[in-house]
Design a protein around this nucleic acid. Sequence first.
DNA 1: GCAAAAGTGTTCGTTTTACACCCATGT
DNA 2: ACATGGGTGTAAAACGAACACTTTTGC
Lengths: 249, 249
Amino acid sequence: MILDDVSVDCVIFGFDGTSLKVLLHQINRKVLQQTLPSEITEEQISRLYDHHPGMLDETLWNLFAAHVPVDQDLDAFALDLVRRAIGLKNVYLQQIEAFGAAKRVPYTRVITVGYYALINPAYHDLRKSAIAKTLQWFNVTELPPLCFDHAEIIRKGLEKLRWEAMYQPVGFHLLPEKFTLTEFQTLYEVLLNKKLDTRNFRKKISKMNLLIDTNEKQKNVAHRAAKLYQFDMANYNRLKKEGLNFRIE
Amino acid sequence: MILDDVSVDCVIFGFDGTSLKVLLHQINRKVLQQTLPSEITEEQISRLYDHHPGMLDETLWNLFAAHVPVDQDLDAFALDLVRRAIGLKNVYLQQIEAFGAAKRVPYTRVITVGYYALINPAYHDLRKSAIAKTLQWFNVTELPPLCFDHAEIIRKGLEKLRWEAMYQPVGFHLLPEKFTLTEFQTLYEVLLNKKLDTRNFRKKISKMNLLIDTNEKQKNVAHRAAKLYQFDMANYNRLKKEGLNFRIE
DNA sequence: GCAAAAGTGTTCGTTTTACACCCATGT
DNA sequence: ACATGGGTGTAAAACGAACACTTTTGC
């Protein structure tokens, strides 16, 4: 059994080294069946379609959304949803907030809880996803027409991501496991939407002691190869207890 | 018609000049009828009671909560709820987040959206409230046994309030319209849970240009009377556009 | 005149900003 | 050898932390 009036919507953010992207999809009945929990009946799916005509509009794009099963925790269900969408675990997931305008979905009342996920697109072969054919990455600054209030959910998600990235090292979830300082800086320039001074940025980061030098370098680049670093989660947790305040702005 | 599986829970914070308080109440059937929207039938109230036995437990205290009417915006409904609880408008209200553990309410599935409201207790004669007899302010550090996951909602609300107070001047909503710098400092000491240096605090505040000197002073105090200030909302909005960053930590 | 809280400046160390050149690598 | 991005230090300014005494008021 699912709750007819409560859904979860996931904004999946990715960083390709240059710009911040959102993963969107277009939906059809077959895809919907794979996206929703297996216990859902044909009749329930039909009802969803009757209530969400926008879902079938081929000019509109969607976030990953599904109605919440009556017996599943909200957070756990949001994780499931991301897994079904892109076929992987270990995704960093945060709740954005609840969206509850009475008419956000026409014809029926659905309150949705927004989440955002951070992934590194290079890690994920989207062709393996069950709904691969309709998946596409969009630049956050150039979104296509979106279903329902999905544009608003993305806007709020982005606002929250920016905020969190400034005060907690969540940015690492958008990078490959091993990354260069330039990649790291570019990510923050994109998130904060402003240029940062390279020397000052590097000084700040290195004083934080949050990176492990892997002693590896980039390969096959047509310029001096950059050192590769890893995020030092263990040390971050240690320092956080002692009151470290991470801040990049 | 109300949604059986979606409710709103409001944490009402107040500051009495010394410590941060939460307004809680104990509930009975008569009170519940006044708290819920008028369209709700007797039969629906009975169902609520069947599903929420904790609500009638006289040893437990509650946040202000109600199920969401099918045709009302979530934010607007949360405001209504606060008004019904304490009988006033112009309350600062923020969403905390959605709480969706499958078993947060026993016997039935209810996802709740938490909000926090900031009020100044001196302004509000709680005796005028419809549910006055069961209302009580509790220190946030000395909460009584609470219904459901209300302790968790308060904890998260407090966390969010602290966070917002550090980076946005929301603290003003907890003070009287005219307040002294000492009151303002005490508020932030309570919110941040640490002592602040008076001279440095005053320097910082005055550099922000967010206070209007009312040219009034305290009266009938057994010591030098302090100047009274007002928050300069107009200037705050102007400065925010130019990129002021309010920060107290 | 005394108790109680209001109000005020300076010094010192830290952090932030601004800024320009040499280095390593692939072609 | 050249194009491309990687990597580094220093000086000046702004900011934050620490700290003690005088003023005003009611009793």
